[in-house]
Amino acid sequence: MAQPMLEIQQLKLHFFTDQGVVKAVDGVDLTINKGEIVGLVGESGCGKSVTSLSIMGLVPQPPGKIVNGSILFEGKDLVRIPSRKMRYIRGKEIAMIFQEPMTSLNPLFTIGNQLTEAIRTHETCSRREAEQRSLEMLKKVGISREGILREYPHQLSGGMRQRVMIAMAMILKPRLLIADEPTTALDVTIQAQILDLMRLLNKEFGTSILMITHDLGIIAELCDRVFVMYAGQVVEETDRYSLYKSPGHPYTQGLLRSIPGMEERQKRLYAIPGQVVPPHNMPAGCRFAPRCQDVMERCKKEVPPLSPVAEGHLSRCFLHQGGEQEHGTA
């Protein structure tokens, strides 16, 4: 079987604000294997971005604080590593690209400066060599225009900038690439190109990818396995086929139903009723209970554990486990 490269165990990250404690990430388990593309899905504010930033050690502390759990990256626990050493992992072993290509590049430095800086932060090499490597990497992401290294971000289109961001992230061939909604700000044709590019780099360099998105279409196209997050918790873990064929959690089912289909032209688009629970005021039982159509009495009192629905398919719901639990996993 595949080896885990990144293993997040029971991660809890809370923000301590004047309004109270916000449990942005509350007991997340997530594994990524070598060479795998893993999707992390959920709506805005469910904690997916914070989870990814905590892998990078980029959550501002304070107000944020990891109160529990570990992030094992090739055996090293990133939660306990001192921030001085974390710097050598960031960018070299784990790289990240962000949602907003328009604002993620520094407007006052040339593309060349920002790319070579990524190399020369971690490796000693001459500027000529770094520039040469930058040009090669830019060619790989599909930018081969003359003089690109001397250009400034504002001279490039959004898609080009995201390619530059990807080149910058991939230039040191990291083991893991975290992509936080990298295509959200781009138009659809560019989206497809960027996704193709990521798949290509995954094949070529064997880089694992954690793809954070709220777009189930991207998951279908790109990811091997999927984690669905809701209100700071993973509610479902499965491969991409069973995600669409037999979603286990009512929230996932709701998400899938809210995708507009080709046939149902007449119907009003489905929306999950209610709103995401406020982070200061989580319900005692299942966090999805207030919006769930299949809610039971038990859901309001107990927190359902992540439990198997099928081989390699976990769901945080009492619906599927009623019988199973009595049969006894014990």
């Binding site: 980029l58 960031r90 960018g91 790289a95 604002t103 993620s104 590049l105 520094n106 407007p107």
Partner: peptide, 14 residues
């Protein structure tokens, strides 16, 4: 607070 400062940190700059 800008995004590109986060990018700079993500590169592993001191």
């Amino acid at each position: 607070r800008q995004d590109y400062i986060r990018t700079a940190r993500a590169k592993g700059l001191s």
